[in-house]
Design a protein around this nucleic acid. Structure first.
Lengths: 199, 199
DNA sequence: ACCTGAACACCGTTCAAGT
DNA sequence: ACCTGAACACCGTTCAAGT
């Protein structure tokens, strides 16, 4: 409710930065372009953010919150918990494909989240939401009974690796490589088989 | 033998760029700093490379070749093929930890390898060398009989995801998360169990 | 409290010359 | 063939003012 209408300058700057990021990548997010898009001077952003990195961090924090909501929606939506996990991962992959520059800002850029603060907190909450979906799959016996956070870290890292390689253009020429979505399905089926094989 | 002694200017520029990359990240690799390190003017690099991106691409190509040699060394070195794979992956993880900026240049930077050319070719050859190690594990029955390149892509993407998240500082605060090396071992053990469960 | 304009140091890149 | 110096357009950031 708070920001339903009449966004303030800080919010407008974040939205404009995200749009520039989508349109032209990180290098297109100049304070001059952001200021111009909002209708203020090129150093007005300094009245709302300490520097350019903080503005980008605000973009990342907002997107982490959106992703967390996406994961929360997928939890317990289907009858089969493994279906929820597949949907959550497909949504994650779709996010990476649609917003590659944002994706790398959130999950690869060393300047974000490494400093701690808001982005790191939001990132961890997003991760925990994802871990809850994995936990339900484990409870249903569809994934191995490995400690939840370890298994979640493994699955999440795999998804990230697949998306990041795709976003970075590393999986294009190499034929006979499965798509991220197919690779994730392969991982889940192998893990499921592993879970079923416990004596 | 060719570049045993008396490296030419182009080679010296690549070495200097790599050193600056290690010392201060991508943003520290300015043509002015590279030129100064080699003892030439700030636009001498243009006589050897079309632009800054091409210089960084040359750094990446050289490192891909080094990594390929590392993988080749690990193949067939131990009696057990799964041990070779673990060693190759540990060497890969160590490379990422030692040279984080180089690592992200090779495997995350969208400006490298996406354009094709030398870096993409070298990257694919490195990948195929890694795939050969995976193939030996499959032949020994220690990994599932999934199509080799699909399984290799999955394992490689997982390793990349773990390393990239670590390099980007995404796995620090989150306690109870396994290290990349531990996570990879978890993956391999689960895959091995999956391979053993085939009827 | 919030914003502006000028200024500074720094970049990648281009170009006209130099040997 | 290879290099240099000046110049251009651009950037993040700072600062002294303005309301």
């Amino acid at each position: 409710m708070k920001d339903a209408a009449a966004p303030n300058t800080a919010q407008k700057l974040v939205v404009a930065a995200a749009a520039l990021l989508d349109a032209g990548g990180t290098s297109a997010v100049t304070l001059r372009a952001v200021g111009h898009a909002v209708g203020v001077s090129h150093n007005a952003p300094y009245k709302h953010f300490p520097d350019r990195a903080a503005l980008l961090a605000a973009v990342a924090t907002a997107d982490f919150t959106t992703l967390q909501a996406t994961f929360a929606e997928n939890r317990s939506s289907a009858t089969r918990s493994l279906t929820n996990l597949r949907r959550a991962l497909d949504a994650f992959i779709a996010y990476g494909n649609e917003y590659p520059a944002r994706y790398q800002l959130l999950f690869s850029n060393p300047d974000i989240a490494a400093h701690g603060g808001d982005p790191a907190t939001a990132a961890f909450e997003t991760f925990l939401e994802f871990a809850a979906i994995v936990a339900e799959c484990q409870a249903a016996g569809d994934l191995p009974a490995t400690p939840n956070l370890e298994l979640t870290g493994l699955i999440f890292a795999t998804a990230h690796g697949l998306i990041d390689l795709e976003v970075g253009g590393r999986m294009k020429r190499e034929k006979r490589l499965a798509s991220p979505s197919e690779s994730i399905k392969l991982l889940l089926s192998l893990l499921q088989r592993s879970a079923a094989s416990r004596s």
